[in-house]
Nucleic acid binder design. Structure first.
Length: 113
RNA sequence: AAGCUCGGUUGACUCUGCCGCCUCACUUGUGGGGAGGAAAGUCCGGACAACAUAGGGAGCCACACUUUUUGAAAGGAAAGGCGCGUUCAACGGAACGUGACAGACAGUGCCACAGAGAUUUAAACCGCCGAUGGCCUUCGGGCACAGGCAAGGCUGAAAAGGUGAGGUAAGAGCUCACCAGCGCAAGGGUGACCUUGCGGCUUGGGCAAACCUUGUGGGUUGCAAGACCAUGUAAACUGGCGUUCGAAGGCGUCCCGCUUGAGUCAGAGGGUAGGUCGCGUCAGAUCAAUGGCAGAGCCCUUCGGGGAACAGAAUCCGGCUUACACCGUGUUUUGAA
RNA sequence: GACCUGGUAGCUCAGCUGGUUAGAGCAUCUCACUUUUAAUGAGAGGGUCCUGGGUUCGAGUCCCAGCCGGGUCA
């Protein structure tokens, strides 16, 4: 995670900010993703959990497109999603945002090759 | 309709299908379980763990009407007593509400400002009187000098019992009656307390959410407790104290006692900062799982839609407090008929 | 998770054992000085003492509950 913040590429899809880096992961998987919602913006744990669950679900749906051509010895990616908005989004909004982010990520991965 | 009071709630969507998460069981696919009444605040009390091991005292902290009851404790419930407030009554009291409600006759302390006087012989500013003594006198009295007085005014949160009568120069518990308060006795009540009688009245009060006293209870620290495994380093350096005349530790503080007994404390510096258990719980995480989509039903709608409010378990229980929705009881206010 | 600590003027802080009118420095405003500004001097304004109850004659201070910050412990 520190590596992702230090060297990762920035992907903006306001109000979602993503950082991604190509690195060796501990398991044979294409991605490891982390989700973050700031405590300063959302004081109540209920709201933070809600946003993280929506982002998690959107990522689950969208990552399949990225992962379908992945082979066990291909490069692995660590991704961190940070929510920086001030209001709780609906699921459809959240899905569109993650979709934009994953498309950018796909381009970056192609460029990396 | 709104507010208040008390009580209740698996306390909010339901069903079907598909995809997905945590965990357990059998085994590769099924099946079981998967947030709250407050999970919150962390305000109390425990379980549990550590402090090698007995103990005593001081200190510290918490609580405080009585009886019964529930509970491991904290806390709760019922009934009663006393105080205060409101209303009704009309001097017998009654109803409702409310109270962190032991002690101010154990001691210490404080009561600013104002005011003449504020706490142990209280106080003479405006006043009242001036009987007694003094001065003057037309012998009727006058003066207000010595002095007497706490009844009235004033100040204040509070002014040394209250009301009435007698008494007096004027006054005063000075005397008496009743009332309040205090002490003693008797009786009633399990008890808090109440009733009656007697006594003297040199008998002021308030503040213990001031120190404190009395009674009761409490060893301290907390799961980041603690146990184990792994990784790594510096058994080095500087200074203090000390090895039987005893350092330092043994429960946060002090004293005594007991006990271990050669290291220990501080500084600067070097290193690690991962895991397992604790935490077994028909949720069980080491950074934390409960979600999404589609359809039908139901409800709300500002016809776009929406499915609430307060709010998310982190060792576990029992309370307290605070936040909030719905339902019901009682009550108050306002509006309409 | 557990345990400490704080909240006072626009900012940083005092305010002792409850008492008379809540102060200090900086900042702001006005005036003076100066050609002007700064500095300096004089003066003025500015406070829900975090909020709500309670104790008391009287609360920034004492007690209870809440809100919002800061810190410590593996």
């Amino acid at each position: 995670m520190d590596l992702a913040f230090a060297k990762g590429i920035k992907i903006k899809a306001f109000p979602i900010l993503a950082r991604a880096v190509q690195t060796e992961l501990s398991h044979e998987v294409p991605f490891q993703a982390a989700l973050s919602v700031g405590k300063k913006r959302f004081r109540r744990a209920v709201d933070r959990n809600r946003i993280k669950r929506l982002m998690r679900e959107a990522w689950r749906v969208e990552k399949t497109a990225l992962a379908k051509n992945w082979k066990p010895d291909a490069p692995q990616w660590a991704v961190v999603f940070i929510f920086v908005g001030n209001e709780i989004p609906s699921f459809s909004d959240c899905q569109h945002l993650i979709q934009r982010a994953t498309k950018r990520l796909e381009m970056e991965m192609a460029a990396e090759k």
